[in-house]
Simulated assay, not measured.
Amino acid sequence: MNLIDEKYLTASKDQDQRAVLFFRLQHPPQQEALRELLHTHPHIRVHDTIRQQLKELIKTRHPAEKLSEEQLQQKITAHAGAGSLDAYGVWVYYPWSQRLVHLLDEAEFVEMRTSRNQHKITAEEIQRLATKKIGIIGLSVGQSAALTLAMERVCGELRIADFDTLDLSNLNRLRAGVHNIGLPKTTIVAREIAELDPFLKVTCFDEGITESNIASFLTGNGRLDVLVEECDSLDIKILSRQQARAARMPVIMETSDRGMMDIERFDQEPDRPILHGKVQETLSYSSIRQFSGEERMRLVYDILDYDNISDKLKHSIGEIGRSITTWPQLASAVALGGAMVAHVCREICLDRPMPSGRYYVDPDQVF
């Protein structure tokens, strides 16, 4: 006997929803479409804080003034017009949670979302960053990086690639609720970014990166400004760098061990050896796919520079296939990696000095 009626189970066709719907009530067809949505989905939860958002907008635009409530209301009326605020801004519908949220429209939303960045990131720099495209392959450290990039609004478009779905064991380092187990990692990241900033463009490659789609990932609909490579697949690690070097595109990688950050400025050094010359230039996507387990492990040692990884990771690698199934990663290290990725991407996108090299931000050496 089933304990839960099937009608209460999430339909599989709805599990991958990640696109939001926008309704601008100044346009009668969109007003009617929203009315129909509310009629056909009576359980939608409505969140309307537009007056609070407008108050914050007015205060931010008048930082030197101490405005009373009456003065605030006068300025809101002057800004938005008298009468109901229902048609001001935009209504955003999140189908996976059945939430309808009333927000400032894009320009004012972005102004407020980035107001606390200034002057660490200037208004001119915010505008420059909005034109940038960043791609992330692999959504472990990559998830932390994507969310940090989105929070800082370091770019206007994120391309994310991962073929995997969320497992329970991933929750030691991935930020997600238990109700997301089984969902594609791309969907989880895209949803969280949409809930943070529905205007930030996110393009998902749900099958991960392959030999056949990597060109589209790197340069389709505009070339990436930075590639963040965080995948476990050795063939894709090599292929992505070879393709990025050919496109003169910078590549960065964070390994979540000893805070190791790789920066490869193929945009400035088009003849630079991949992975700082630690691997053979003759390696190819197809040859790596034929490697034995022992050959793959030797390649991992070369990439990581085995003598410089932490003692705990060395021990853990020896336990793979014995007491553990794969190498461990900790949430604290992944969070640090996401922060470093966002920092390096921002500096590269703003044309600040960020030379190629392998760098360590090792907490064990600091404390």
Rank of each mutant, 00 (worst) to 15 (best):
N172H: 10
R173S: 04
L174A: 05
G177Q: 12
V178K: 11
V178W: 03
H179P: 00
N180H: 08
N180A: 09
I181C: 12
G182D: 02
G182H: 00
G182V: 02
G182E: 02
L183C: 08
L183S: 13
P184N: 11
P184L: 05
T186P: 12
T186Y: 00
T187Q: 14
T187R: 11
T187C: 15
I188Q: 06
I188N: 07
V189M: 10
A190V: 08
E192H: 15
E192L: 14
E192Q: 15
I193M: 03
E195Y: 00
E195L: 04
L196C: 05
L196S: 06
L196K: 00
L196G: 03
D197N: 14
D197I: 02
P198K: 00
F199M: 05
F199S: 09
K201P: 05
V202Y: 00
V202A: 08
T203H: 05
T203S: 12
F205M: 01
D206R: 08
E207P: 00
E207A: 10
E207S: 11
E207V: 08
E207H: 01
G208H: 12
G208W: 14
G208N: 10
I209W: 09
I209V: 06
I209R: 11
T210Y: 06
T210M: 10
E211L: 14
E211H: 06
S212A: 15
S212P: 07
N213A: 10
N213G: 10
N213M: 14
I214Q: 07
I214K: 09
A215W: 04
A215N: 09
S216Y: 13
S216Q: 15
F217T: 06
F217I: 07
F217Y: 13
F217K: 12
L218I: 14
L218E: 06
T219Q: 09
G220C: 02
N221T: 09
N221Y: 04
N221L: 13
R223T: 12
R223A: 15
L224D: 02
L224Q: 03
D225H: 09
D225G: 04
D225Q: 05
V226T: 02
V226P: 04
V226L: 01
V228F: 06
E229D: 14
E229Q: 07
C231H: 01
C231R: 01
D232T: 03
S233I: 14
D235C: 13
D235L: 10
D235H: 12
K237A: 08
K237H: 07
K237I: 10
I238F: 05
L239N: 13
L239Q: 12
L239D: 15
L239Y: 10
L239G: 15
S240M: 02
R241M: 15
R241D: 13
Q242C: 03
Q243L: 13
A244I: 00
A244P: 00
A244C: 03
R245I: 13
R245H: 11
R248T: 08
R248E: 08
P250Y: 00
P250K: 00
